[in-house]
Amino acid sequence: MAGAVKKLELKDVRKSFGANHVLRGVNISIEKGKSLVVIGGSGTGKSVMIKSVLGIVTPDSGSILVDGQETTKLKGKDRDAQMRKFGMLFQGGALFDSLPIWENVAFGLIQGKGVSRKDAYDLAIEKLRSVGLPSRVAKLLPAELSGGMQKRVGLARAIAANPDIIFFDEPTTGLDPIMADVINDLIVETSKGLGATTLSITHDMHSARKIADNIAMIYKGEIIWHGKAADIDHSGNPYVDQFIKGSAEGPIKMEV
Protein backbone atom coordinates (compact mmCIF):
# COMPACT_ATOMS: atom_id res chain seq x y z
CA MET A 1 0.00 0.00 0.00
CA ALA A 2 2.58 2.53 1.14
CA GLY A 3 4.67 2.44 -2.04
CA ALA A 4 1.73 2.70 -4.44
CA VAL A 5 1.56 5.87 -6.55
CA LYS A 6 -1.40 8.06 -5.78
CA LYS A 7 -3.12 9.35 -8.87
CA LEU A 8 -5.72 11.43 -7.09
CA GLU A 9 -5.88 12.58 -3.51
CA LEU A 10 -8.37 14.74 -1.62
CA LYS A 11 -7.27 16.19 1.70
CA ASP A 12 -9.77 17.74 4.08
CA VAL A 13 -11.87 19.19 1.25
CA ARG A 14 -14.67 21.42 2.49
CA LYS A 15 -17.48 23.15 0.63
CA SER A 16 -20.57 24.99 1.82
CA PHE A 17 -23.38 26.62 -0.10
CA GLY A 18 -24.48 29.31 2.32
CA ALA A 19 -25.53 27.54 5.50
CA ASN A 20 -25.59 24.18 3.74
CA HIS A 21 -22.31 22.48 4.70
CA VAL A 22 -22.08 19.88 1.94
CA LEU A 23 -18.48 18.66 2.20
CA ARG A 24 -17.11 18.64 5.75
CA GLY A 25 -13.55 17.50 5.30
CA VAL A 26 -13.37 14.75 2.68
CA ASN A 27 -10.22 12.61 2.67
CA ILE A 28 -9.73 9.95 0.01
CA SER A 29 -7.10 8.79 -2.42
CA ILE A 30 -6.92 6.52 -5.45
CA GLU A 31 -3.88 4.62 -6.65
CA LYS A 32 -2.90 4.74 -10.29
CA GLY A 33 -4.97 2.40 -12.43
CA LYS A 34 -7.40 1.53 -9.64
CA SER A 35 -11.10 2.02 -9.43
CA LEU A 36 -12.70 3.68 -6.42
CA VAL A 37 -16.43 3.73 -5.95
CA VAL A 38 -17.97 6.17 -3.50
CA ILE A 39 -21.37 5.13 -2.21
CA GLY A 40 -23.78 7.25 -0.23
CA GLY A 41 -27.33 8.47 -0.03
CA SER A 42 -28.95 11.22 -2.03
CA GLY A 43 -27.78 14.72 -1.23
CA THR A 44 -24.69 13.63 0.73
CA GLY A 45 -22.42 15.64 -1.56
CA LYS A 46 -21.19 12.99 -3.99
CA SER A 47 -21.68 15.09 -7.11
CA VAL A 48 -20.24 18.17 -5.40
CA MET A 49 -17.13 16.13 -4.50
CA ILE A 50 -16.50 15.15 -8.13
CA LYS A 51 -17.21 18.67 -9.35
CA SER A 52 -14.63 19.98 -6.89
CA VAL A 53 -12.00 17.74 -8.44
CA LEU A 54 -13.05 18.87 -11.90
CA GLY A 55 -12.79 22.52 -10.87
CA ILE A 56 -16.46 23.20 -11.67
CA VAL A 57 -17.04 23.86 -7.98
CA THR A 58 -14.30 25.68 -6.04
CA PRO A 59 -13.79 24.14 -2.60
CA ASP A 60 -13.72 26.50 0.39
CA SER A 61 -10.62 24.83 1.77
CA GLY A 62 -8.55 21.68 1.58
CA SER A 63 -6.36 20.38 -1.19
CA ILE A 64 -6.85 18.21 -4.24
CA LEU A 65 -3.75 16.57 -5.70
CA VAL A 66 -3.60 15.08 -9.18
CA ASP A 67 -0.34 13.23 -9.88
CA GLY A 68 0.94 14.87 -6.71
CA GLN A 69 0.23 18.39 -8.00
CA GLU A 70 -2.07 20.77 -6.17
CA THR A 71 -4.95 21.69 -8.47
CA THR A 72 -7.37 23.84 -6.49
CA LYS A 73 -5.56 27.08 -7.38
CA LEU A 74 -4.91 26.28 -11.05
CA LYS A 75 -6.06 28.77 -13.66
CA GLY A 76 -5.95 29.29 -17.43
CA LYS A 77 -3.52 27.09 -19.36
CA ASP A 78 -2.53 24.96 -16.37
CA ARG A 79 -6.17 24.25 -15.62
CA ASP A 80 -6.75 23.32 -19.28
CA ALA A 81 -3.80 20.94 -19.21
CA GLN A 82 -5.28 19.37 -16.09
CA MET A 83 -8.71 19.06 -17.67
CA ARG A 84 -7.28 17.12 -20.57
CA LYS A 85 -6.41 14.34 -18.14
CA PHE A 86 -10.04 14.00 -17.14
CA GLY A 87 -13.09 12.37 -18.64
CA MET A 88 -16.50 12.74 -17.04
CA LEU A 89 -19.81 10.97 -17.39
CA PHE A 90 -22.44 13.28 -15.93
CA GLN A 91 -25.33 12.11 -13.80
CA GLY A 92 -27.90 13.41 -16.29
CA GLY A 93 -25.79 12.71 -19.37
CA ALA A 94 -25.35 16.41 -20.12
CA LEU A 95 -25.16 15.76 -23.85
CA PHE A 96 -25.21 18.91 -25.98
CA ASP A 97 -28.72 18.74 -27.37
CA SER A 98 -28.06 21.06 -30.30
CA LEU A 99 -25.23 18.87 -31.64
CA PRO A 100 -25.47 15.49 -33.38
CA ILE A 101 -24.24 12.42 -31.51
CA TRP A 102 -20.92 12.18 -33.29
CA GLU A 103 -20.08 15.81 -32.50
CA ASN A 104 -20.97 15.21 -28.86
CA VAL A 105 -18.52 12.32 -28.73
CA ALA A 106 -15.82 14.17 -30.64
CA PHE A 107 -16.32 17.51 -28.89
CA GLY A 108 -13.22 17.30 -26.70
CA LEU A 109 -11.13 16.19 -29.68
CA ILE A 110 -12.26 19.03 -31.94
CA GLN A 111 -12.28 21.84 -29.36
CA GLY A 112 -9.65 20.68 -26.89
CA LYS A 113 -7.10 18.89 -29.07
CA GLY A 114 -7.64 20.59 -32.43
CA VAL A 115 -8.36 17.37 -34.34
CA SER A 116 -9.89 18.08 -37.77
CA ARG A 117 -13.63 17.49 -38.07
CA LYS A 118 -13.18 14.66 -40.54
CA ASP A 119 -10.71 12.74 -38.37
CA ALA A 120 -12.84 13.48 -35.34
CA TYR A 121 -15.85 11.97 -37.09
CA ASP A 122 -14.00 8.73 -37.77
CA LEU A 123 -12.76 8.59 -34.18
CA ALA A 124 -16.26 9.24 -32.91
CA ILE A 125 -17.65 6.33 -34.94
CA GLU A 126 -14.93 4.10 -33.49
CA LYS A 127 -15.73 5.20 -29.93
CA LEU A 128 -19.45 4.70 -30.52
CA ARG A 129 -18.70 1.14 -31.69
CA SER A 130 -16.67 0.50 -28.56
CA VAL A 131 -19.73 1.31 -26.43
CA GLY A 132 -21.93 -0.86 -28.62
CA LEU A 133 -23.69 1.79 -30.70
CA PRO A 134 -24.08 1.42 -34.47
CA SER A 135 -22.71 4.14 -36.73
CA ARG A 136 -26.21 5.05 -37.90
CA VAL A 137 -26.87 6.91 -34.63
CA ALA A 138 -23.95 9.26 -35.34
CA LYS A 139 -26.06 11.82 -37.19
CA LEU A 140 -29.04 11.74 -34.81
CA LEU A 141 -29.64 14.31 -32.06
CA PRO A 142 -29.44 13.27 -28.38
CA ALA A 143 -33.20 13.72 -27.91
CA GLU A 144 -33.79 10.98 -30.48
CA LEU A 145 -32.07 8.33 -28.35
CA SER A 146 -33.33 6.31 -25.37
CA GLY A 147 -31.91 6.94 -21.89
CA GLY A 148 -29.68 3.86 -22.08
CA MET A 149 -28.30 4.89 -25.45
CA GLN A 150 -27.67 8.41 -24.12
CA LYS A 151 -25.64 6.92 -21.26
CA ARG A 152 -23.55 5.06 -23.79
CA VAL A 153 -22.99 8.24 -25.76
CA GLY A 154 -22.00 10.00 -22.53
CA LEU A 155 -19.58 7.17 -21.86
CA ALA A 156 -18.16 7.38 -25.37
CA ARG A 157 -17.66 11.14 -24.91
CA ALA A 158 -15.98 10.62 -21.53
CA ILE A 159 -13.41 8.20 -22.98
CA ALA A 160 -13.00 9.84 -26.40
CA ALA A 161 -9.85 11.79 -25.60
CA ASN A 162 -8.21 8.82 -23.81
CA PRO A 163 -8.21 10.40 -20.36
CA ASP A 164 -6.01 9.33 -17.43
CA ILE A 165 -8.79 9.69 -14.90
CA ILE A 166 -12.44 9.03 -15.59
CA PHE A 167 -15.32 10.11 -13.36
CA PHE A 168 -18.65 8.36 -13.45
CA ASP A 169 -21.53 10.09 -11.70
CA GLU A 170 -24.24 7.48 -11.14
CA PRO A 171 -23.72 5.69 -14.45
CA THR A 172 -26.55 3.20 -13.94
CA THR A 173 -29.30 5.35 -12.42
CA GLY A 174 -32.54 5.25 -14.38
CA LEU A 175 -31.65 2.13 -16.40
CA ASP A 176 -33.23 -1.32 -16.30
CA PRO A 177 -31.11 -3.93 -14.45
CA ILE A 178 -29.85 -5.59 -17.61
CA MET A 179 -28.89 -2.35 -19.32
CA ALA A 180 -27.30 -1.24 -16.05
CA ASP A 181 -25.14 -4.33 -16.06
CA VAL A 182 -24.18 -3.78 -19.69
CA ILE A 183 -23.03 -0.27 -18.75
CA ASN A 184 -21.10 -1.69 -15.77
CA ASP A 185 -19.29 -4.08 -18.08
CA LEU A 186 -18.55 -1.27 -20.52
CA ILE A 187 -17.11 0.87 -17.75
CA VAL A 188 -14.83 -1.91 -16.55
CA GLU A 189 -13.82 -2.80 -20.10
CA THR A 190 -13.10 0.69 -21.35
CA SER A 191 -11.25 1.89 -18.27
CA LYS A 192 -9.12 -1.25 -18.15
CA GLY A 193 -8.52 -0.83 -21.89
CA LEU A 194 -7.21 2.70 -21.35
CA GLY A 195 -5.40 1.81 -18.14
CA ALA A 196 -7.30 4.69 -16.58
CA THR A 197 -7.89 5.47 -12.94
CA THR A 198 -11.58 5.82 -12.17
CA LEU A 199 -13.70 7.49 -9.53
CA SER A 200 -17.35 6.52 -9.62
CA ILE A 201 -20.25 7.44 -7.45
CA THR A 202 -23.38 5.42 -7.15
CA HIS A 203 -26.05 4.17 -4.81
CA ASP A 204 -26.42 1.00 -6.83
CA MET A 205 -24.60 -1.69 -4.79
CA HIS A 206 -24.59 -4.18 -7.63
CA SER A 207 -22.82 -1.64 -9.79
CA ALA A 208 -20.39 -0.77 -6.99
CA ARG A 209 -19.38 -4.40 -6.47
CA LYS A 210 -18.83 -4.87 -10.17
CA ILE A 211 -16.76 -1.75 -10.87
CA ALA A 212 -14.82 -1.22 -7.65
CA ASP A 213 -11.37 -2.17 -6.50
CA ASN A 214 -12.01 -0.05 -3.44
CA ILE A 215 -15.17 1.34 -1.94
CA ALA A 216 -15.68 4.39 0.26
CA MET A 217 -18.85 5.54 1.91
CA ILE A 218 -19.74 9.21 2.23
CA TYR A 219 -22.21 10.34 4.86
CA LYS A 220 -23.03 13.93 5.76
CA GLY A 221 -20.08 15.26 3.79
CA GLU A 222 -17.44 12.98 5.31
CA ILE A 223 -15.92 9.65 4.31
CA ILE A 224 -16.99 7.37 7.14
CA TRP A 225 -15.56 4.11 5.80
CA HIS A 226 -13.23 2.95 3.08
CA GLY A 227 -11.75 -0.38 2.21
CA LYS A 228 -11.39 -3.10 -0.37
CA ALA A 229 -14.49 -3.97 -2.38
CA ALA A 230 -14.31 -7.53 -1.06
CA ASP A 231 -14.55 -6.29 2.55
CA ILE A 232 -17.75 -4.36 2.08
CA ASP A 233 -19.92 -7.16 3.49
CA HIS A 234 -17.99 -7.34 6.76
CA SER A 235 -17.03 -3.73 7.22
CA GLY A 236 -18.16 -3.74 10.83
CA ASN A 237 -19.58 -0.29 10.20
CA PRO A 238 -23.28 0.03 11.03
CA TYR A 239 -23.78 2.82 8.47
CA VAL A 240 -22.32 0.74 5.66
CA ASP A 241 -24.31 -2.32 6.76
CA GLN A 242 -27.52 -0.36 6.71
CA PHE A 243 -26.74 1.12 3.31
CA ILE A 244 -25.94 -2.18 1.59
CA LYS A 245 -28.96 -3.84 3.15
CA GLY A 246 -31.09 -0.91 2.05
CA SER A 247 -32.90 -0.89 5.35
CA ALA A 248 -34.81 1.94 6.98
CA GLU A 249 -33.66 0.65 10.40
CA GLY A 250 -30.24 1.82 11.57
CA PRO A 251 -28.11 4.84 12.40
CA ILE A 252 -28.85 6.66 9.12
CA LYS A 253 -32.00 8.68 9.50
CA MET A 254 -33.63 10.11 6.41
CA GLU A 255 -34.41 13.77 6.79
CA VAL A 256 -37.84 13.87 5.22
Partner: peptide, 20 residues
Protein backbone atom coordinates in the same frame (compact mmCIF):
# COMPACT_ATOMS: atom_id res chain seq x y z
CA UNK B 1 -33.95 29.61 -22.29
CA UNK B 2 -31.21 27.88 -24.24
CA UNK B 3 -28.33 28.81 -21.93
CA UNK B 4 -30.52 28.29 -18.85
CA UNK B 5 -31.38 24.78 -19.99
CA UNK B 6 -27.71 24.10 -20.63
CA UNK B 7 -26.98 25.29 -17.10
CA UNK B 8 -29.58 23.14 -15.35
CA UNK B 9 -28.80 20.03 -17.42
CA UNK B 10 -25.07 20.41 -16.63
CA UNK B 11 -24.15 21.01 -20.26
CA UNK B 12 -22.19 24.10 -19.23
CA UNK B 13 -20.24 22.00 -16.72
CA UNK B 14 -19.68 19.45 -19.49
CA UNK B 15 -18.19 22.19 -21.70
CA UNK B 16 -15.67 22.99 -18.99
CA UNK B 17 -14.63 19.35 -18.66
CA UNK B 18 -14.10 19.22 -22.43
CA UNK B 19 -11.55 22.08 -22.28
CA UNK B 20 -13.97 24.64 -23.70
Amino acid sequence: AEIGTMRVTEQIDALTTLST
